[in-house]
């Protein structure tokens, strides 16, 4: 017997510092819960299949694609979007560097790039290696090549890559 009515679940998530309680259809992804239900449209939907990175948020401190995470599976989670990275008019250093280096054009991939960069810099701080790290056992040095590899999960069709890398380098210094 196939169900016709949605299965609903009550969850509470923290979004950019605010506790939000909502009832979600179990089919709802974190991305859709944010955008369609909570009106938090900073994370963008570019592909809905984990192939572009526009929906990247920080989930319990880690960068993830929110389009493949089910909302119901993240009850109690702490979510930070690019909107929440800024403190009112004070931009996060990564955001400021994106502005300074013009690391954006149409702006649609930008919040995902920003969240990804923030999450990525934390991963580097924790000493995580990447595909281009020469010696997997040695400490990581944040070269441009490392930034590019680590940011490759965020597509940009306008071609702002070179400026984004410059921005991240600047923010990391």
């Amino acid at each position: 017997m196939t169900r016709t009515n949605p299965v609903l679940a009550d969850i509470a998530i923290h979004v950019d510092g605010d506790k939000r309680q909502l009832s979600v259809d179990t089919r709802t992804t974190l991305l859709d819960a944010l955008r369609d239900q909570l009106g938090v449209t900073s994370p963008k939907k570019g592909c809905d299949h984990g192939q572009c990175g526009a929906c990247t948020v920080l989930l319990d401190g880690r960068r993830v694609v929110s389009c493949l995470a089910l909302a119901v599976a993240n009850d109690g989670a702490e979510i930070v979007t690019a909107q929440g990275l800024a403190d009112g008019d004070d931009l996060h250093p990564v955001q400021q560097a994106f502005l300074d280096r013009d690391g954006l054009q149409c702006g649609y991939c930008t919040p995902g790039q920003v969240c990804s960069a923030v999450g990525m810099l934390r991963e580097v701080q924790e000493g995580w290696p990447s595909h281009v790290t020469g010696d997997l056992a040695a400490p990581v040095e944040l070269t441009d090549e490392e930034i590019r590899e680590r940011m490759s999960g965020n597509l940009c069709r306008c071609g702002a890559y070179a400026n984004i890398v410059a921005a991240i380098r600047e923010a990391a210094e």
């Binding site: 984990g50 990175g53 694609v65 999450g119 991963e123 290696p129 790290t133 997997l136 490759s152 999960g153």
Partner: peptide, 28 residues
């Protein structure tokens, strides 16, 4: 991929993981 045991003793496994998908996907 970031685990020290794996990086030291089984670098092929760390390297394979790091060549897959993206940072955001590997975190999930």
């Amino acid at each position: 991929a970031a685990n020290p045991l794996v990086r030291q003793n089984y670098p092929v496994l760390a390297a394979a993981l790091l060549s897959g998908a993206s940072g955001q996907l590997r975190n999930l």
